[in-house]
Nucleic acid binder design. Structure first.
Length: 471
DNA sequence: CTAGGGTTAG
């Protein structure tokens, strides 16, 4: 009996029959009968097409990020405007705050990058309904413009705010300025910077930092330093974010020698600037990256000692940068030495091994990365989900399905939870079926059910080909 | 809204 798998998610039926015993059928069963917590919100959204917010206020259901994603997913195709309005409304729900992750998720689900006009349409809707839009709500829209990387729409919303007599604040300007900088529209970002005082707004550290970053990225170091003078003149004392940005520019467009001199200068910041402008972990990581980019990984390594001299400990980002650079230059021994020397002091040894394995993997040295991975398992170090997934995926792609399966089993035996990418489960399962390792496939499915592994329809569609396995 | 960047989950 053929099984249709492509449409089983999100059935509206809430009366679930008894779960079947057979593992794969159980798995598909749970995919089919999981309920939709977002249903209440969707019902109220669809009731009236306008004044959506009032209806939503009446909903008593709990609002969480999963629920928001589901609502947006349902709005995406037919009613993206409704989705945007829901998202703006949800930003002020007393029991919830949007994280930056939620902004990017919303942007993806509503396809705002391709259709930024939806944002403008929503503003027009608000206006047509006489809805009083607050600055806070506009800022949610501006942040959506940022996620959609649409400078044009950001500028449009900023102008519209004034038109609706909803005066933008410094943060509103900052969002649009960063957006312009990210799009390489430096002149316009500086135009907005100059416009701010005319609106009684004071550019702050973030404002200057954004434009300075733009100038640095464009290689205009003098311009950037000029702006540092300007901000000082306005009583805005540069902090290490500003100086690290400049240092990054110097490393990219000047020279490492100049970069090191600039770092020297930062280490001797005058007392009145307090600690704010002193080099921190990011500053040192920036110069390490500078050396790495010039193919001088060993010199980068030596910066670690200078950090410790300044009583700063390298963090995860510092190590990722350094280890990745060393591996790219084939200096595996040196990288391993860094891991063994610094592991456990600030960053755990297992995390450093994960970086090592992933760097090797990314550098295309799959054999070495697999060996390193097995070494770390043997030493009782816990692999991250990303590391384990990458290694197993690599093995499966090489056609060594059983090797991949046994490695997976070994990771299972560790006793601590490793979050394997659903995609890896999917391809392991498919390949095991394909090669007729049905016992292994069966036990894998058992683990998937136990783990509540959620697959997207596209990830198990191909399993429909293995009907013999299902019966 | 905040510099360097592949943890996690959201």
């Amino acid at each position: 009996m053929p099984i249709s798998i492509s449409f089983i998610r999100r059935s509206s039926s809430l009366i679930a029959p008894r779960a079947p015993d057979f593992p794969l059928k159980r798995f598909l069963f749970f995919s089919k009968y999981s309920s939709i917590p977002a249903q209440d919100f969707l019902t109220h959204l669809q009731k009236h097409q306008s004044h959506v917010e009032k209806n939503l206020d009446a909903v008593k259901s709990n609002l969480d990020s999963q629920c928001i994603s589901q609502v947006l997913e349902h709005c995406a195709i037919e009613k993206p405007k409704l989705g945007v309005r829901f998202f703006v409304w949800a930003a002020f729900h007393p029991s919830h705050r949007h994280t930056s992750y939620m902004y990017s998720k919303a942007c993806k689900l509503l396809n705002l990058e391709k259709n930024p006009r939806i944002i403008a349409d929503v503003v027009d809707e608000y206006r047509a309904e006489g809805f009083a839009v607050s600055v806070k709500m506009f800022k949610v829209l501006l942040n959506l413009c940022r996620e959609a990387r649409c400078a044009e729409m950001g500028l449009w919303v900023l102008r519209k705010m004034k038109e609706l007599r909803c005066m933008p604040d410094t943060v509103s300007y900052n969002v649009v300025i960063r957006l312009l900088v990210a799009n390489g529209r430096l002149d316009e970002s500086m135009g907005l910077l100059k416009e701010m005082p005319l609106c009684d707004l004071t550019p702050d550290m973030v404002t200057y930092g954004s434009v300075i970053k733009g100038l640095c990225d464009a290689g205009d170091l003098e311009g950037a330093l000029g702006l540092v003078k300007v901000m000082k003149g306005h009583g805005c004392v540069p902090n290490s974010v500003i100086y690290s940005t400049i240092l990054d520019g110097i490393c990219m467009h000047g020279s490492l020698k100049l970069g090191l001199e600039f770092l020297d200068g930062m280490e001797k910041v005058e007392e009145k600037e307090k600690d704010e402008g002193r080099p921190n972990v990011v500053t040192y990581t920036t110069i390490i990256k500078g050396f790495i980019d010039k193919g001088m990984a060993s010199e980068a390594r030596s910066i670690l000692d200078r950090m410790y001299d300044s009583e700063l400990k390298p963090n995860r980002v510092t190590f990722v940068t350094l280890i990745d650079g060393l591996i790219k230059e084939g200096k595996v021994e040196e990288a391993l030495k860094v891991v063994d020397t610094f592991g456990g002091d600030g960053v755990r040894t297992d995390e450093l091994y994960n970086m090592l394995v992933l760097s090797l993997f990314r550098a295309g040295k799959h054999k070495e990365s697999e060996e390193m991975f097995r070494t770390m398992l043997a030493r009782g170090l816990k692999p991250s989900g990303l590391t384990a997934s990458s290694i197993i995926r690599g093995i499966v792609l090489e056609g060594r399905v059983l090797d991949g399966y046994f490695l997976f089993q070994e990771i299972e035996k560790l006793g601590s939870f490793v979050s394997i990418d659903p995609d890896v489960y999917s391809s392991l399962l498919a390949c095991l079926c394909q090669e007729n390792h049905l016992a292994e496939a069966g036990s894998l499915v058992n683990i998937m059910v136990e783990r509540r592994v959620h697959l997207e329809p596209s990830q198990y569609e191909h399993l429909a080909n293995f009907r013999s396995f299902l019966n």
